[in-house]
Every structure is written in structure tokens, then in C-alpha cells.
């Protein structure tokens, strides 16, 4: 059950090659329509171009070829309405959790009362209330990633891009963070694109999962899940869940072996 029909963001024949003495063809060609309000995950072997995909979609770097649109307009630079959570820890060590979360709004010159309202909400939502006055160095990696998610959340993005946000967490914590992500997705009605290397995470959270090949990353499979919108991590117990992860692994196995072969 998707919220509204229609493409929120589109990628047409998008490629990205990193220039240099030995140019690296990292991505594409990629064709994809992200539907408004859907939860879309990308899985693929490491180094296949997932972060590169996020970069060009967010407007942080230009594709080498192809066209990207967001809400019907071509992407040039980071459009208003797109929020990004990076793979690396991007919290500001010199600011408290609260100031980290308020950072973007303050720079935009938002009304202080409005800032307080949104920051309180985001801090509560991400379970950071007890840490509002702590500094990132006093927090675990997972908590810092929550700070970064909250910092993006307060900007009320309509498309949220997350790059392996729970990569460093243990399995149980990841499942619970997954639930929070689902809650966030439901409450904000945003479109979510999640990059992950965990098949179970992709299978449990997503409306659709795109499986990428080894570099240069192209989509080799798109898997539709048909979960209800009010799902949570308990669906890992269902037979249908096993079928989805099984199909993902079926598509990914050969590609992962290629990636390992390249590394070895």
C-alpha cells in the first residue's frame, strides 16, 4: 500500500566515472523511478557504487552522463527537500547533541520557537532526550548516527537518503533501529532510499529492493515485497520474509563472489 502514486525521483541512464590517471567506472547505467512515499532499499556487494548512487541522486556530485530529476525538476546541486545521512560519522564533535540537531535550521534562519519545537520533537523521536546535552565523543557510534538522522529529520525532507546508517551496529540493535526507521517513514510520509549491505534489513524494511551488480553497479533485480505499511521487525518470523531474502541472495550471490574475486 503506497501513499500516492507517481515518481518522486527519476534516474535515466545515469553513470558516474571517477576521473583520474586510471578512471574508475563506478556506476551505471542506472534507470530507476523512486515512487512517492515508498521505502526503497539498495543492496549490493561492497565497492559496487552504492554510495556513488546516493551522491549523484542527492546532487552532491554530478553524474558523468544521464539525467536525474526530483519532483519533476532536474537535479543541480542538492535540491530543497532531500535529506542525507552519510555512511561515515558526520556529527560535529564541537557541538552538543541538541546543537548538532538544530544546526541546519539555525543556518537557515528559522524562527527560534519553531527550531525549539522541531528539535525537541526530533530528539524525542530518536530517543536522544537523555543525551541532549552530551557531546558526540561521549556517545556510541549508533547514538551518533541517530544524531545525524535527527539533524536531517528536523529539516522535514520529503526524500530521505540513508547510506548504511546502521553498518557498525550489532544485529539486534539493527533490527530495533529498523523499526524506528519504519516509524519515521510512516510519520513523515517521506520517500526513503536506504543503502545497506544487510539482506535481512532490506527485506524487512522495504517496499522494493534493488539488487546491484559488482562494479560498475547496475540493477540486476528489483524485488517487490508487499508488506503492510504498519509492519515491524517481527515479520522476520514469516515465511514470506524467508522467500524475499532467499530471492535477494539468489541474485546477489554470484555478484558477491565477483567482488571477492576482485579483492583477492
Amino acid at each position: 500500500m503506497t501513499a500516492e502514486a507517481g515518481a518522486h525521483a527519476t534516474l535515466r541512464a545515469v553513470t558516474r566515472t571517477y576521473p583520474g590517471a586510471r578512471p574508475v567506472h563506478a556506476l551505471g547505467p542506472i534507470d530507476l523511478d523512486l515512487m512517492r512515499g515508498e521505502f526503497f532499499s539498495v543492496v549490493g556487494p561492497s565497492g559496487c557504487g552504492k554510495s556513488t548512487l546516493l551522491d549523484v541522486l542527492a546532487g552532491l556530485s554530478e553524474p558523468t552522463s544521464g539525467e536525474i530529476t526530483f519532483e519533476g525538476k532536474p537535479v543541480r546541486g542538492v535540491p530543497d527537500g532531500i535529506g542525507v545521512v552519510f555512511q561515515e560519522d558526520a556529527s560535529f564533535p564541537w557541538l552538543s547533541v541538541r546543537d548538532n540537531v538544530a544546526f541546519g535550521l539555525r543556518r537557515m534562519g528559522t524562527d527560534p520557537a519553531e527550531i525549539t519545537r522541531r528539535v525537541d520533537y526530533a530528539i524525542g523521536f530518536m530517543g536522544l532526550k537523555d543525551f541532549a546535552h552530551s557531546y558526540p565523543a561521549q556517545l556510541s557510534g549508533g547514538m551518533r548516527q541517530r544524531v545525524c538522522i535527527a539533524r536531517t529529520l528536523v529539516l522535514q525532507p520529503r526524500l530521505i537518503l540513508l547510506d548504511e546508517p546502521f553498518g557498525a551496529l550489532d544485529q539486534q540493535t539493527r533490527l530495533l533501529m529498523g523499526d524506528e526507521l519504519l516509524r519515521l517513514w510512516r510519520e513523515t510520509s517521506a520517500t526513503v532510499l536506504l543503502i545497506t549491505h544487510a539482506l535481512d534489513e532490506a527485506a524487512m524494511l522495504s517496499d522494493r529492493v534493488g539488487v546491484m551488480s559488482a562494479r560498475p553497479g547496475v540493477f540486476i533485480d528489483l524485488v517487490q515485497t508487499n508488506w503492510p505499511r504498519d509492519r515491524d521487525s517481527r515479520i522476520v518470523a514469516e515465511a514470506e520474509f524467508g522467500a524475499v531474502t532467499g530471492r535477494l541472495w539468489g541474485s546477489l550471490r554470484a555478484e558477491s563472489m565477483k567482488a571477492i574475486g576482485r579483492a583477492g
Partner: peptide, 30 residues
């Protein structure tokens, strides 16, 4: 300076001046 901080500056639509005063300066101060 971690590259990801500069990417964050872009993602948060900071002006070059804001990037310098609110991000680069505190990042290098210690």
C-alpha cells in the same frame, strides 16, 4: 578535515561563508 563534514555542509545548503565560520573554523580549532 573529514570529507564527510564538507559533504554535510553541501547537504545542509551552507553558504561558503557559513561553511568557513560554522564548520571549518570549529573543526580546525582544537
Amino acid at each position: 578535515i573529514p570529507q564527510v563534514l564538507l559533504r554535510t555542509a553541501k547537504a545542509l545548503h551552507l553558504t561558503p561563508m557559513q561553511t568557513a565560520t560554522h564548520l571549518l573554523a570549529p573543526a580546525v580549532l582544537p
